[in-house]
């Protein structure tokens, strides 16, 4: 079983827009509903990244509070809450990993990637199941190294320089894997969008 069907179901539900508006009015019940909709997804994603239940709980809490406090900046008419919330969840977890491993924390950069305005119009495309199927298919066709670098970027927040150190491979080689992997995913995505 995978999570995406849940994400799809949650994102497709009529209530996302209404829920966003209620969050903006700071109704505590809206936070409860938001948690019921996305809490499992957020927890699973964060746990996959930090591999520690206690830390995962703290980070899920931080994620929901952050969304709660920043809902004002979210355009309820255009965006879907799920992708935004998951971006916040991933970033909180990566930030935690960086801090515990003594790596340089690029908090500012992560903040940028979770700005609510970046998630406008996202759901229309993300909720296209054909696209999801194609991208998953493309992901499965990646070589082991190509998949590894994408996972290191997504689940651990490693830059290419850090990947090269971690994997003990020359930076140029890592960059080639990354570029090729992303090209494959991008082509598949482009095909899905224009299909």
């Amino acid at each position: 079983m995978t999570l995406l069907p849940l994400l799809l179901a949650a994102g497709l539900s009529e209530g996302d827009r209404e829920l966003a508006e209620r969050l903006q009015r700071r109704e505590p019940e809206a936070l409860a509903e938001l948690y019921d909709r996305y809490g499992r997804l957020a927890y699973a994603l964060i746990y996959r990244i930090v591999r520690d239940t206690g830390a995962a709980e703290d980070l899920v809490q931080e994620t929901f509070l952050r969304v709660w406090n920043r809902a004002q900046g979210f355009d309820a008419g255009k965006g879907s809450l799920g992708p935004w919330l998951l971006a916040v969840a991933r970033n909180r977890a990566i930030d935690y990993l960086r801090s515990t491993s003594g790596r340089l924390r690029n908090a500012l950069e992560l903040e940028e990637t979770e700005h609510p305005s970046h998630f406008l119009d996202l759901e229309k495309q993300i909720l296209n199941s054909d696209m999801v199927r194609r991208v998953k298919g493309a992901f499965a066709r990646l070589s082991e190294n190509q998949r590894a670098v994408i996972e290191l970027a997504y689940f651990e927040g490693l830059s290419q320089t850090e990947m090269s150190e971690r994997m003990g491979q020359p930076l140029g080689t890592v960059k080639t894997w990354v570029r090729t992997a992303l090209q494959i995913l991008r082509d598949e995505l482009g095909a899905a969008v224009s299909a």
Binding site: L4, A32, G39, Y43, A44, P83, L86, L122, Y154
Partner: peptide
């Protein structure tokens, strides 16, 4: 961003403990 969001698909499902909901609220 869309393409990268799809990567959440590969995460195995794990249920959070029920107390987490109470704590957040």
């Amino acid at each position: 961003r869309e393409a990268m969001a799809v990567l959440a698909e590969t995460v195995p499902p794990v249920a959070p403990p029920p107390r987490l909901r109470r704590r957040i609220l």
